[in-house]
Design a protein around this nucleic acid. Structure first.
Lengths: 348, 348
DNA sequence: GTGAAAGCGCTAACAG
DNA sequence: CTGTTAGCGCTTTCAC
């Protein structure tokens, strides 16, 4: 069923049908009724392809994700969808599937960039109105998206060059968490870092050190463990640390998986949490919701990051480019019961 | 840059350009070269909208998901994408976001069906070649997709009426797991069920009972706990059960969250796993990978379900409808160290 | 109020 | 081998 056929059945021109469908011109009550009835009866559906071709506007947004199976991605997509629904946009998802690809072959950048180019090329051929690029790690991306004359927003990553972006602040979040410990009287810290090269590791470390410096506390080198984001590596090293007579008392882990490892190692060694050892995680992953005690952690604004990204993009599509906008959203501490309130604090 | 402009620059007709772009007709080596050079130099990109409009075929697949944030969804999407990439299709994602919607308002079916209809309507307007519907719970769906003259495949759910579907077998998986216990000499079972009305609960129970019946073992009513899929409910009830003198020894939990609850309750009560109590989970969720001992669980073929769904759909798109196909994929036991091998078994 | 007609960018007979 | 031409389904001036 096409608009033309509707017109024929109603005995009017295609223009008239188009007018009533879009309300783009005055049509007599009578003909409008007649046309609307036919539209309803026949179950006619506009061909958006034809419409978009003619209007040179698709209301389609290309969403390039580095990997859907990295769990934060789904929440970001959800946020994107939420605003898309409100604004009448639709998303076409391009999943680079980098997680499995990178594992199986080590040409990190080269093949990688090809995939991105190809994905973007196809989206552009589909005439998307704009593109959102969702990273799998929070990091700087050396302009992966080039020669695109459409609005682009980076989410869960950012670029040194051009392009708007939406992210959260690793540094601030870590600072916040460390403050949380300090306010409760903690002084003797251990930090479980992620992998050495990673940007989040670096930025979170900065936040921690910043907060400690403000209180005149310095972090001892031997109290820093590189857990590489993983359970096993962390557990083994923490076991060793707990044997030391000068073992620290407040553990800041840079993700929840490592925090759980600390908890397990502590129990194994006969320490109680939070009585003997205090502990925090990062990410608000599922795992912190099980086991005792609940680990205090950081919740990243995933949904909102997607939402804001889409907001930026839509604004640029509808109102034109007006300079890059870089948004950093705040994180939130999710309180568990893994951090003790020290008596000494009150006495000071 | 349009095909017409390319033609003008090359001094040929649009037809010729189209021929070289699609290889749809013989073109002299010389003009081909000339055209290809211009295409490359100008960075020309086909307008897929126009192309699809003309060909009446988009290579676009509509993927309707009940909720992206339900974690299995991402893996199913990943599987869909994998085949899509191979076959040259693209997916447009429609996220119903049912999880949050259902929680905030209780008009379960009514508003719900409206959302689906709207989502499908839009996909159809976009001229997708077919639709995959991805459920958030494995269950029967009372034909939510009607009046669609395009191929449809249900994934992670199925319909009593028409429509192809791809799922896994709850019953077989539970049977398999129970067999696994039996083969290791276990006889005294407890079952932690999911919520009462749920179909997976029902089917998994059938699988368990089937396996037990084969060995002439009957499950005592008082050894069945309704954990409602949740940690807390389960933990409390298991604590009670463990106090009984006739407390069972092999615990089959219908999901991993409840299995973790059993583990925690057991440790708390001074039982060792697997020495005193054996335990299995279901779903292969992240959480089973932490803590000790690793819980033996069931891995669902999520990626493959997406992949197969797409395979069915593409087949129907390219070769026409040839009856509904309903595929049930097998699950896989992921061995942890939570199930003891009983001595008695050897003696028998 | 309504219609005729041009055209969005592309493909595919059909001719030559 | 290459060009002419007629649309795919829709919107939108510009007339009347």
């Amino acid at each position: 069923m096409t608009l033309k056929e509707i017109a024929a059945q109603a005995g009017v021109s295609t223009a008239t049908v188009s007018y009533v469908l879009n309300g783009s011109a005055r049509v007599s009550e009578e003909t409008r009724r007649r046309i609307e009835k036919i539209v309803k009866d026949t179950g006619y559906r506009t061909n958006i392809l034809a419409q978009s071709l003619r209007k040179n506007r698709t209301s389609l947004i290309g969403v390039v994700v580095e990997d859907v199976t990295v769990w934060h991605t789904a929440y970001v997509i959800d946020g994107i969808n939420a605003l898309a629904e409100e604004k009448g946009y639709h998303t076409i998802l391009s999943n680079l599937r980098l997680l499995s690809k990178i594992e199986s072959q080590f040409e990190h950048i080269s093949k990688f960039q090809r995939d991105i180019d190809k994905a973007v090329d196809i989206l552009l051929r589909m005439q998307v109105d704009g593109i959102i690029y969702v990273g799998m790690h929070d990091r700087e991306i050396k302009d992966v998206l080039h020669d695109i004359d459409k609005p682009v927003v980076y989410c869960y990553c950012y670029t040194a060059g051009e392009g708007s972006s939406v992210r959260y602040s690793n540094e601030k979040a870590a600072y916040q968490m460390t403050k949380y410990f300090l306010e409760r009287g903690h002084k003797d810290f251990a930090v479980i870092k992620g992998s050495k090269q990673s940007e989040p590791t670096f930025m979170r470390m900065r936040g921690i050190e910043h907060a400690l410096r403000e209180e005149g506390i310095s972090l001892k080198e031997k109290n820093i463990i590189i857990g590489d984001w993983k359970y096993k590596e962390t557990r083994v090293q923490v076991q060793e640390m707990l044997k030391r007579p000068d073992c620290p008392q407040a553990f800041i882990a840079m993700n929840d998986e490592m925090a759980v490892a600390v908890r397990d190692a502590a129990f194994e060694a006969g320490f109680r949490i939070p009585e003997d050892i205090s502990l925090s995680g990062f990410d608000n992953a599922d795992i912190v919701h099980y086991g005792q005690p609940k680990i205090t952690t950081i919740d990243r604004p995933l949904h909102n990051m997607g939402y804001k990204s889409m907001e930026l993009l839509v604004d640029q599509i509808e109102n034109g480019y007006d300079g890059d906008v870089n948004i950093t959203l705040p994180c939130r501490i999710v309180e568990g019961t893994s951090i003790k309130v020290m008596e000494e604090k009150e006495e000071q």
